[in-house]
């Protein structure tokens, strides 16, 4: 468990800033057609959630899996931004060799089992990964992020029910950012208190958490981990958050339709602004250090872009056919 000393808190700030810098750079690169893949789902606005949850993991022991909005998860886990950016651009040095793209980041070393693009498709995988932890008694847990949209499909039902039946060690975190693609949560869910679905599966309903407040997220997931470690099986948390760049960056209609709501979140609930304010209240001398961190992250992202653009595209028959099967 991470100790909440100044060094830890500053590192959380660094992770969130790195993610924001990375994502806004991706947005820019997309508009300039330097990132060419059609799908690009940015994590801007949700940084506190990934960072605060992952802070509870023992990296390399515990497991994590998520949907397509996966850049922030990869960055918080400590994957090299260079390889992530190269993956955005489909280069050989990409974390998935350029074969996965934005939605399919992963890292075996970090027990990051991937970003997945079929809504809900990764939820049974989370159950299976948790089964391995239980089967081999590794003491590890799985964090599985679930979009609010995914919580309405069959995968969610079957996976959480199985987790309930088998007492699987999964921390299910619904990322309720208000929309499943363009449909608001209350137009898609019969009961908008999504966390209450836990009751139907016999797993622990841990209620809601303010996904913009990294300290609250950290504590909630910490409490969840205690429950899972005690052998009592899965928990369900609903985190309330917001996405700054729509469902995907190609969805232009988003910016105008939800401009006021978006402005409100940015103005009053930005996770990085809120956390910086907290740090500056707590440590009166910290502003300069935080400014330096921001500058450093900008540089890291610039270097990642340079690295990625200098990495070649895979373009041989051998690369095309490699890894269809294990030979």
């Amino acid at each position: 468990m991470a100790r909440l000393n100044r060094e830890t808190l500053v590192d959380w700030y660094r992770q969130m800033v790195l993610t924001r810098e990375f994502e806004e750079t991706c947005y820019q690169l997309y508009t300039e057609k330097r990132i060419t893949g059609v799908y690009l789902h940015l994590y801007s606005g949700q940084e506190a959630l990934g960072t605060g949850a992952i802070a509870n993991m023992e990296i390399g022991k515990d497991h994590i899996i998520t949907a397509y909005r996966d850049h922030g998860i990869a960055l918080c886990l400590g994957m090299d931004p260079k390889n992530i950016m190269a993956e955005m651009m489909g280069r050989v040095d990409g974390s998935s060799g350029g074969k996965g793209g934005s939605m399919h980041l992963a890292s075996r070393k970090h027990n990051f089992w991937g970003g997945y693009a079929i809504v809900g498709g990764h939820l049974p995988l989370a159950a299976g990964i948790a089964l391995e932890a239980q089967y081999n008694e590794t003491g590890a847990f799985v964090i599985s992020f679930v979009g609010d949209g995914a919580s309405n499909n069959g995968y969610f039902h079957e996976s959480l029910n199985l987790a309930g039946v088998w007492d699987l060690p999964v921390i299910w975190i619904i990322v309720n950012n208000g929309f499943g693609m363009g449909t608001a949560t209350d137009r898609a869910a019969g009961n908008v208190n999504l966390h209450e679905r836990a009751i139907g599966y016999g797993i622990k309903d841990m209620g809601r958490v303010d996904g913009q407040d990294i300290l609250a997220v950290y504590e909630k997931v910490n409490e969840a981990a205690q429950h899972v470690w005690s052998g009592k099986g899965s928990v369900l948390i609903e985190a309330i958050t917001y996405r700054y760049r729509g469902h995907g960056v190609s969805d232009k209609q988003y910016d105008s339709a939800f401009a006021e709501e978006l402005a409100e979140w940015k103005e009053n609930k930005d996770p990085i602004v809120l956390f910086r304010r907290h740090l500056e209240d707590k440590y009166k001398d910290i502003s300069g250090e935080l400014d330096d961190i921001v500058a450093e992250q900008k540089k890291i992202v610039e270097e990642a872009v340079e690295f990625a653009e200098n990495s070649p595209f895979p373009d041989t028959e051998e690369q095309l056919y490699a890894n269809v099967y294990v030979e």
Binding site: P124, L125, A127, G128, I129, Y155, S159, L162
Partner: peptide
């Protein structure tokens, strides 16, 4: 398992990956 083919398929995938 419950009568839940989606998770039978998908959980087997996850367990195998792990």
């Amino acid at each position: 398992t419950p009568i839940s083919e989606m998770v039978i398929g998908g959980a087997a995938v996850g367990a195998a990956m792990a």
